[in-house]
């Protein structure tokens, strides 16, 4: 099932960046005009974007970790 990681991660990132772009491009504006409100708006979308990237990195790490096989009693090398 490891092959699911790349397509799912790419789709998630594309969707997250589409949401971020809507805010940056002004299609999803802030509730009040002015630069501080607009920057705050962008920050509120950047935050989950960073969390998502972090979780994808952790997932990749988990998948890359070597599988540890528990020793079976009575079996010698």
């Amino acid at each position: 099932m490891r092959s699911l990681f790349l397509p799912a991660a790419i789709i998630a990132l594309v969707a997250q960046f589409a949401v971020l772009w809507a805010v940056i491009a002004g299609r999803a504006p802030a509730s009040s005009p002015g630069r501080p409100a607009r920057l705050a708006e962008i920050a509120w979308v950047v935050l989950p974007t960073l969390v998502l990237i972090g979780v994808l990195f952790l997932t990749w790490n988990r998948m890359a970790a070597p599988v540890v096989v528990a020793p079976v009693a009575g079996v010698t090398a």
Binding site: A12, A15, R27
Partner: peptide
Amino acid sequence: RETMDQMLWYTILLIALTVLPVAYG
């Protein structure tokens, strides 16, 4: 219109996210 567009993106993101735990078992 924009709200519906954002709902669509978040739904796509959600579906992708729900698949990811399968990738690491």
